[in-house]
């Protein structure tokens, strides 16, 4: 019997290539408009829309509510803070920092939503 060493055999797993073939980048799913791509897109749009509606709700309640409050309780108009009437204080001064605050929070959250979307696409 010849004492030749056993031939070297390359060991590979058939699973790896198969698994790799199944991974399709999310970007391509969106480009091909598959159902999965639709899910990626509609989750982005829905999260941005929910955020926008939240900001609008804050605007409607806190600024849009002012006429209603003063209509229901007209006596509030007579309150004065440092010689400035209360309605004046609210509408001429306080409302602007509030609008800026809502806007700032919105921009931060909207950019966070977009980063999350970009991360999902980069990971796949």
């Amino acid at each position: 019997m010849s004492e030749s060493a056993p031939r070297r055999v390359r060991v590979t797993s058939p699973r790896t290539s198969a698994a790799r073939a199944q991974r399709v980048p999310a970007a391509r799913e969106i480009d091909a408009q598959t159902r999965l791509g639709e899910v990626y897109m509609s989750s982005l749009i829905r999260s941005q829309l929910r955020l926008a509606l939240l900001a609008l709700a804050a605007l409607v309640v806190f600024v849009g509510g002012i006429p209603l409050v003063f209509w229901l309780a007209p006596d509030l108009s007579d309150i004065e803070v440092l010689a400035v009437p209360l309605p004046w204080l609210l509408l001429a001064f306080a409302v602007y920092p509030f609008l800026l605050l809502v806007g700032w929070l919105y921009v931060r959250a909207a950019e966070r939503n977009e980063r999350a979307f970009t991360d999902v696409l980069d990971r796949t």
């Binding site: 605007l59 409302v95 609008l99 806007g103």
Partner: peptide
């Protein structure tokens, strides 16, 4: 001014 907030969001 609030119109710009609506525009923004």
């Amino acid at each position: 001014t609030a119109g710009y907030l609506v525009l923004l969001v």
